[in-house]
């Protein structure tokens, strides 16, 4: 299972904060593949997840767009920050 977390505006678009995705026996998946899986499941995220402004974390560390997600990882989809 991969745990996916949505924050701020993405939480609103997804309608949920967190969801688990089953890799169906695969041990890992490319981030692009995971995004496809999520958009299929939650079409409201389609535009936002393909935009360039969203950062992605894997196990709470920033990840590049070519990163690979392993089973049991936690993936965060992070809109532009506005703290401070």
């Amino acid at each position: 299972m991969i745990t996916v977390r949505f924050f701020a505006m993405l939480k609103g678009l997804a309608g949920i904060e967190m969801k688990e995705y089953d890799l169906g026996g695969m041990k890992e998946i490319k981030l692009s593949g995971l995004k496809e899986m999520i958009v299929k499941d939650l079409p409201g995220l389609s535009e936002a997840l393909t935009g360039r402004s969203i950062l992605i974390s894997i196990n709470q560390e920033f990840a590049g767009k070519d990163a690979v997600v392993k089973d049991n990882d936690e993936v965060g989809f992070l809109p532009p920050f506005s703290g401070g």
């Binding site: 701020a8 809109p79 703290g83």
Partner: peptide, 11 residues
């Protein structure tokens, strides 16, 4: 740096 890298969001 806080504004750049810290996952905090304002509504």
């Amino acid at each position: 740096e806080l504004k750049r890298v810290t996952p905090i969001w304002k509504r």
